[in-house]
């Protein structure tokens, strides 16, 4: 147990070194040459200070929750559309081929290109952010679900049929569990995308959220606030990914 903890701590040593180096450069060296350096390149201590202030005022929690709620809703909608759609495409090849053409045309469009339409259709607010999140995360989930279904080995299907499985049970008891690892990969990538486009969409059309906080920092002339927003985004993104990995291990003990 002790060595496990030690290993966990030591895995953050490079990150710690970078933060210490940054603190020395931005906190002690740079201010000697420029009195307003904190407004251009703030040290981690300043970022931590503003983090603490906003945490105490409750503002940070409000914005973080706003952002996370949007991602949760957007990612949830994308999952509810993409997984059944992907399964149907894998199950009915003719339908899958038709859909594939449509998807391959839509997929290369950067999600940000949808922001004007998001604003046009939903106005400034959480709806347009959710819309862009749905667009961004739907494709990786969809493509991986289709790939997962297509990957199911014919011999497994034949085995199941030979053992007396009906078409429906074949799908539920063989195709679905066999495709699950790939579907979860899609969900992981999709969640990553969702979190990434969140900020961009909040920067443009929003009145709350972590992206809005970063935008606000410019209006306020507070770069440490922007850094803080960026860090919170980075850390939450990291935790979300770690959560998905954990889920993968728990759900798929056989997929070693």
């Amino acid at each position: 147990m002790g060595s496990k903890l030690l290993r966990l701590i030591s895995s953050f040593s490079l990150l710690a070194a970078i933060l210490i180096g940054w603190e020395i450069v931005a906190g002690t060296i740079y201010p000697k040459y420029n009195a307003t350096s904190v407004n251009i390149f703030p040290p981690p201590s300043a970022v931590l200070g503003i983090f603490w202030d906003l945490l105490r005022s409750g503002e940070l929690v409000t914005h973080t929750l706003a952002s996370m709620a949007r991602v949760a809703v957007g990612f949830g909608i994308a999952t509810l559309i993409a997984v059944p759609l992907g399964l149907s495409m894998g199950a009915w090849p003719a339908w899958g081929e038709q859909m594939r053409v449509v998807i391959e045309v839509l997929r290369p469009i950067p999600p940000f290109a949808w922001i004007p339409f998001g604003l046009l259709w939903f106005g400034v607010g959480p709806e347009q952010t959710v819309f862009v999140i749905v667009i961004s995360s739907i494709f990786p989930i969809l493509m991986n679900t289709v790939a997962g279904v297509e990957q199911v080995e014919p011999v497994l299907k034949r085995s199941a049929l030979s053992l007396g499985a009906s078409k429906l049970r074949l799908f539920i008891n063989v195709v679905l569990p066999r495709a699950l690892p790939q579907i979860i990969v899609g969900l992981r990538i999709g969640l990553g995308f969702a979190w990434m486009v969140l900020v961009a969409s909040e920067l443009i059309g929003s009145t709350a959220g972590l992206g809005y906080l970063i935008l606000d920092s410019r209006n306020l002339g507070l770069p440490s606030l922007a850094f803080m927003g960026m860090f919170v985004i980075g850390i939450i993104g990291y935790l979300l990914d770690a959560g998905m990995r954990w889920l993968e291990r728990v759900l798929l003990p056989w997929n070693a």
Partner: peptide, 13 residues
């Protein structure tokens, strides 16, 4: 019921 050469067991079960 058939038995195959290999890879026919359900890996998740």
């Amino acid at each position: 019921t058939m038995v195959w050469q290999r890879y026919a067991l359900f890996p998740w079960r």
